[in-house]
Design a protein around this nucleic acid. Sequence first.
DNA 1: TTACTAAGTTCAACAACAGAACTCAATCTC
DNA 2: GAGATTGAGTTCTGTTGTTGAACTTAGTAA
Lengths: 162, 162
Amino acid sequence: MRRTRFDRWPCPIARATDLIGDWWTPIILRNAFAGQKRFDEFQESLGVSRAILTNRLNRLVKEGLMEKVAYSERPARYEYRLTEKGLDFWQVLAAMWRWGEDWLWKDGRAPVKLIDRETGADIHPEVIDSNTGKKLDIRQTSVALRKRGKKSASPTMKEGHL
Amino acid sequence: MRRTRFDRWPCPIARATDLIGDWWTPIILRNAFAGQKRFDEFQESLGVSRAILTNRLNRLVKEGLMEKVAYSERPARYEYRLTEKGLDFWQVLAAMWRWGEDWLWKDGRAPVKLIDRETGADIHPEVIDSNTGKKLDIRQTSVALRKRGKKSASPTMKEGHL
DNA sequence: TTACTAAGTTCAACAACAGAACTCAATCTC
DNA sequence: GAGATTGAGTTCTGTTGTTGAACTTAGTAA
């Protein structure tokens, strides 16, 4: 009766969801992107239970999004740093940022914005198809099976339109 | 001792996480994008508990990502359709798709891909800044408070670099 | 010697999830 | 017209996961 796992499903969205599909993981990553590194720093700024924080950081390390690095030998002290894999996850958080600021403020606008560190210009994340440079349109998008693909773990991802 | 809620936090990522920060919601939305509409269709293809499915669909309706529409009066039968707000969420799932296919297949590639429904060309989601057209770079990105912003609910989102 | 710090671990109460069975109104099948 | 089927749920029982507080441990500072 364990939590259902998606990490062997043949769909990238399902596998990504398995990894970050809980309340704390995306928020912890957000704070890591904001420069936080230490256990107590995460714990105090978020108010998360220490047991859960331990669990989530361990998972992020095991999955390669963060690495645990000693910044002091004696006493032994560690910090958590984003890896390349973790840094690349910024695209997902940025897409969430964009959707969130577009849709989740009923009255007024979000009190924060993303800016370019050098020019100060506003940054508006947008998801495009890199082949055409155009904004994604679901109505034009389908899922296809790759040729010579490996057998897909159940449940099968069917071809078809999105 | 309720689950910690983020829906009043001043950060778009936190609010979005509150909405989709569980294992089933993104997967249900994925299937909705794949064209599924009915309760039993979701239930059978995902194997999710009916109680949880009811709960998640209700939440998605309450938050405006889906709408419950009667497709038959007698007997009363309903289907769930993505709204504009729900359709726009595709950018987030697409970003997850891209990150997932780039990082979550150790051996080989994901067995599925996104293609353009008309041309059949591969689609590669990518997150850019719509002002510059360039790929996002976290090392160049900061968070800024908007001028004249409303008081921020705790915890405070600080200015600073990401 | 006592207090403090960082990074956890342990614990009890409670909430959420899984899987199966049950409900209910209407329609189809024999 | 009796019984089975369908769609869309609700209810139930037993685990598993989350919360918040207290405790641990090794080393340092006062």
